[in-house]
Write a protein that binds this DNA or RNA. Sequence first.
DNA 1: GGTTGACCCTCTAGTGACTTCAGACTTTAT
DNA 2: ATAAAGTCTGAAGTCACTAGAGGGTCAACC
Lengths: 139, 139
Amino acid sequence: MSVEPFSIGKLAKATGTKVETIRYYESVGLLAPPARTKNNYRAYSAQHLARLSFIRRARALGFSIEQVQALLQLADQKDISCKAVDAIAREHLAEIDRKLRDLNTLRAELSSVIVQCGNGTISDCRIIETLAPDPAALR
Amino acid sequence: MSVEPFSIGKLAKATGTKVETIRYYESVGLLAPPARTKNNYRAYSAQHLARLSFIRRARALGFSIEQVQALLQLADQKDISCKAVDAIAREHLAEIDRKLRDLNTLRAELSSVIVQCGNGTISDCRIIETLAPDPAALR
DNA sequence: GGTTGACCCTCTAGTGACTTCAGACTTTAT
DNA sequence: ATAAAGTCTGAAGTCACTAGAGGGTCAACC
């Protein structure tokens, strides 16, 4: 297992992150500044890879950068209760469920709209009407 | 049916939009600038109400402002085929399906994390590990 | 008639999470 | 040797709003 440090480009490729995004994470204090080579290039360790992977996964899960910060801080204090971690996760799960419900509703609406929009002209096309105002709002 | 023009506040209430957002839509060319009263207050017509309702519905469905612009332009040319409208909607549906798949995966992970994170300390807590890097990425 | 509070106006700046750009240096491949 | 690809910093741009400063206007109640 080679423990040589790697460049920002390699780290980017390994984690599916853009180079600029990695630098951004460093600038906002999400990812610790790595060592530098004599040319001032960033030299990352396996720790950085692990942490960036965590960050990316958490971001993909929809956690905000602030929430990821909180999770990382908690993760670093291994001796305390994980109730706080659990709370953050639960809070987020509720959010995901809300998003899922919304998206499913939208999906249904959108696909019914598409079905109606078979091949006619716009004047026959229901997609516009479907999105048109609810008469009830016009009171 | 009263056809008197209404203020930005009434329009906001009728469409569930913030006043500032309406002005923003005008500034980016999404909503046509309305007439003005002698006091320079915006005076909206039923057309504006209809169009803003459309905009809000489309935005709620997750269309970007650019996509909404496209839909509105298409809607204004009533004599052409609605294939373009259909294409935009279909494209958007695919996007929604991708998000749904992701969210479902995430939900499963997060809830299994919560189950495991019952009452131990962080060192027992799997939440960090669950989000830890995929060993495959470390090649 | 005065004043309180709810509206409305414009213009500017702030938000989150990046992305893009300009301008310069270094490393790698041909 | 030279060109392409990678890296650096710092600043500005993006999206879709949101908030704030600093002002004018209007309806109503005392």
